[in-house]
Computed example of a mutant assay.
Amino acid sequence: MDAPVIREFRAGDAPWLVERHQTLYARDEGFDDSFGPLVAAILDAFIAGHDPACERGWIAEAGDRRLGSIFCVRLDDRTAKLRLFLLEPEARGQGLGKRLLATCMGFARGAGYGGMQLWTHESHRAACALYRATGWELTESKPVTSFGVQLVEQSWRISL
C-alpha cells in the first residue's frame, strides 16, 4: 500500500463515505438502514452550504484507495464540531487516525475556534482512547436506542 495522504474532501467522495459508514456500522455495530441516510443528509448539507473558511472535510487515501475521513463543522462562533471520523479496518492502528484528528483540530484552531465537541458511542474504544490521549474530555454518557440497537452515547469536548 502507498503511504497514506490526507487531502480535502470533494463532493465526489460522498457516495463512498455514505456506503462505508452504512456497511461498516451495520457489520460492526449492528446498525439498521437508517444510518446511511443520516450520513447522506450530513454530507448533502455540508456540500450545499459549508463555509470553507471555518468548515472543512478531509479524506485519507493511499493510491486510489480511500481509507478514512474526518470533518470540522461550525457549531457556533466559538465551537467546532468533529464529524464523520471513519477509518477502514485495514488502516487502523497505524497512526492515520491520529493524523486525521490532528489535521482537523489544527484547522479548527487556525479558523479561530476556542473549542471543539463531538458525539460518538462508547463501543468505539480506539477512537475514545485517541480522544482521551489528545486532551478531549468526556462530558456526558447515556444509554440510548439508536439505529435499531442499544448504545451508550457519549459527548466529548476540548479547549483549543
Rank of each mutant, 00 (worst) to 15 (best):
M1E: 07
D2H: 13
A3G: 08
V5H: 10
V5F: 02
I6D: 05
R7W: 02
F9T: 07
R10M: 08
G12K: 07
A14W: 06
P15E: 09
E19T: 14
Q22E: 15
L24Q: 13
Y25S: 15
Y25F: 15
A26C: 05
R27K: 10
D28L: 11
D33P: 13
F35D: 05
L38V: 14
L43P: 06
D44P: 05
A45I: 01
A45Y: 00
I47V: 15
E55I: 04
R56W: 02
E61P: 02
R66W: 10
R66S: 08
L67R: 11
I70K: 10
C72M: 11
R78W: 11
R78E: 12
K81H: 04
L86T: 10
L87Q: 11
P89T: 09
E90V: 09
R92D: 02
G93V: 05
G93M: 04
G93L: 03
Q94E: 13
G95P: 11
G95D: 06
L96R: 13
K98Y: 02
R99V: 04
A102T: 11
F107C: 05
R109P: 00
R109G: 13
G110R: 07
A111Q: 03
G115S: 09
L118D: 03
L118F: 06
H121D: 00
H121W: 12
R125S: 11
C128V: 01
A129T: 09
Y131D: 10
T134A: 06
T134S: 13
L138N: 08
E140I: 00
S141R: 15
K142M: 04
P143C: 00
P143K: 01
T145F: 01
S146Y: 00
V152I: 14
E153A: 14
W156Q: 09
S159E: 08
L160W: 03
